[in-house]
Amino acid sequence: MTVNEKELAERVIRISGVNTKKCMKCGKCSGTCPSFEEMEYHPHQFVSMVEKGQIKKLMESKSIWTCLSCFACIERCPRSVEPAKLIEAVRVCVIRQQGENHLKANAVPEKLDENMPQQAIVSAFRKYSK
C-alpha cells in the first residue's frame, strides 16, 4: 500500500463512518444487490478491498457509478457494516478531484427525454458530479 493509498483508505473510512472489521464475510450484501451484474467489484469486495487499502482499483471501477443507492445492502447487513456507504465514499473521493466529474453539465441535454423527472437529473448530478 503506497502512502497515498493509505491516506485514501483512511479518508474512505472516515467519511463513510464504516467499520470494515465488523464484517463477517457472509456476502448478504452481494446476494441482495440489484446492480450486482453491472459491477466489476461487488459490495462485499468493497469491504475487504477498503480494509486492504486497495482504493485506487475501486476508484477506477465502474461499480461506483452503477450502485443504485437503493440501500438494500444497508438494510439487510447483519453486522451494520453497510457497504453502500463505502461505495459512496469512494465515489466522492473520485468526483472531488479536479476535473474528475463523472457527469459533465454539457453532456446532460442529450441524455434527457421528455418524461425524465427533475428528480433523476438532480440525483444523477449529486451522485456523479461536484
Binding site: C26, G27, K28, C29, S30, G31, T32, C33, A72, R76
Partner: peptide, 8 residues
C-alpha cells in the same frame, strides 16, 4: 453447500 448468504 454454498458459501454465502441469501439476500432475497
Amino acid at each position: 453447500y454454498i458459501k454465502g448468504m441469501v439476500g432475497k
